[in-house]
């Protein structure tokens, strides 16, 4: 039971750390202004190589984008920007 309490305490403390790290307003607006190309380069590579926009067509990218949003835990904004970029660049 003590272990469970310790584990839960760690789990609860993670959001607290996130809030602590979120202090800088300038950095926050920088993150919001990221382009789809930047997000594509930064997020896909977390698990696999960066896919070429020409690998799939616009319709496929819509499906893949939704699938990856859920599987890789992308935010809704990240998904939309990445898919928009891939569709514009293929």
């Amino acid at each position: 039971m003590k272990k469970l309490i310790l584990i839960l305490a760690i789990a609860i403390s993670v959001p607290g750390i996130a809030i602590f790290l979120s202090g800088c307003e300038a950095q926050r607006s920088l993150a919001m202004q990221k382009s789809g190309a930047q997000l594509w380069a930064e997020n896909c590579v977390r698990c696999h190589n960066i896919p070429s926009p020409s690998a799939y067509n616009d319709v496929d990218w819509e499906t893949i984008g939704l699938h990856m949003r859920i599987r890789a835990n992308l935010t809704a904004e990240q998904q939309q920007k990445i898919v928009d970029f891939l569709k514009s660049a293929n």
Binding site: P15, L21, S22, C24, Q27, R28, N73, T75
Partner: peptide, 15 residues
């Protein structure tokens, strides 16, 4: 139930 959301410059995800 899962999701992700920005927290300042960070991103937090949960399931």
């Amino acid at each position: 139930v899962r999701g992700a959301f920005p927290v300042g410059v960070s991103t937090l995800n949960y399931a």
